[in-house]
Amino acid sequence: MVLFGFFALVLVSVYWVNRAVILFDRLIADGHSAGVFVEFTALSLPNVIRMVLPMAAFAAAVYVTNRLSADSELTVVQATGYSPWRLARPVLMFGLVIALMMSTLTHFLVPASLGQLRERETEISGSVSARLLREGVFLHPVSDVTFYIREISVDGELSDVYLSDRRQPDRSVTYTAERAYILRDDAGPKLVMVSGLAQTMTYKTRRLSTTNFKDFSYDISALIAQAGTPTPRVKHMSTIDLLTRTSEMATLAKDTNGEVLEEAHGRIQQAFLCVVAALIGFSTLMIGGFSRFGVTRQIVLAIFLLVLVKLAESAVTDPVRENAALWPLIYVPSLVGFALAGGLLYSAARPFKRRRRAVPEVPA
């Protein structure tokens, strides 16, 4: 388990770095704080762990088996009468423990974290402070609109505000103000500019008109994505609801029954893949026996077999989504994996012995 934890940590770190870079660019660029970035990263972590668990189990099984083979410990144990089937029992138990961890993630932690993550994304999409309140930066909250604030005081006063609105096809309006405030009412947020100038450019006549104002209210609700009630997704729903209330969940998520069942049974199948990955990693290395040249070929073969299992998983996804009655196909990749591991263990238990050619007797 220590080696499994090490490989899981390495793989999670790799995935997390890639995810963190994307989140950092998207959140920090929109003006969100580092706390929001940490929150989003933490909420995405369970799904990252779910993706790397089978690979970590496979890597741990291959590494341990390779070490035992390199140190001739497997040869010694087999010489005492232990068959490959008997030696595979600890690997099977190890895979079952990882499968239990995977089940906890897929049925509880991942749906809850993804649901919370989507709710937070919806909330911050309508944040005025994140979308508009940034000092010294020319912002483009929507197409053909430019907004700039030189300074924001501690009491919320905006100094030297610039707003250019070019959304009208026949004219553009530019507002400048010494001070401004953001207020909220029932109709939405408003930008109240004080002591400013409005410049209107009419494209057809090429005429520029200016208007001085003491105070002017500008509706900025269109510049901010308003947070609404997000449509539920099957990834955020519990497995029990997906299995027992399939049609209702499909209608709620605006998906087909096949997509709902594919998600539900796919969560169960993920646990089996952890056991399959560990058994394939162990059984493939068992067919090689001890060699001074190592087990590189067996490791490559194990990776190839694991890729075949993943290809089988991809192949059955679309048919199940199109036809809900084909949901048993979801478990075909696991059955293929168990069959491959069983065949390899059978081959290791009864190795093929090449017949020796009879040496012709030399007449005296």
Rank of each mutant, 00 (worst) to 15 (best):
D185N: 14
Y331P: 00
A187R: 11
E178G: 14
Y82S: 09
A271L: 03
R356E: 14
T202W: 11
R89Q: 10
D160Y: 12
F138E: 07
L308D: 06
V295W: 00
F7A: 10
F293N: 15
E121W: 11
A130H: 10
I280N: 02
P90Y: 09
G228M: 10
F138M: 13
I268R: 10
R357I: 12
S221C: 02
I224R: 02
R357T: 11
A253Y: 00
F7I: 06
S334G: 10
V359E: 14
S334V: 06
D219S: 12
L9M: 15
E248C: 02
Y15V: 11
S72I: 09
V154E: 15
L109I: 13
V110F: 08
F37H: 03
P351G: 07
L223T: 01
R26Q: 14
L11H: 06
P319A: 05
L329Q: 06
L139G: 00
Y181L: 15
S83E: 03
L109E: 07
S221L: 03
G81K: 06
H265N: 09
E135C: 07
K235V: 03
T251F: 04
R120N: 13
V260Q: 01
Q226C: 08
F147V: 03
N257C: 01
L133M: 12
F293T: 15
T176R: 14
S125P: 01
L191Y: 02
V17C: 12
R166L: 13
I224N: 04
V173L: 14
F58N: 05
Q168R: 14
L53G: 03
R206A: 13
D165Y: 02
T229L: 14
R357P: 04
E248M: 06
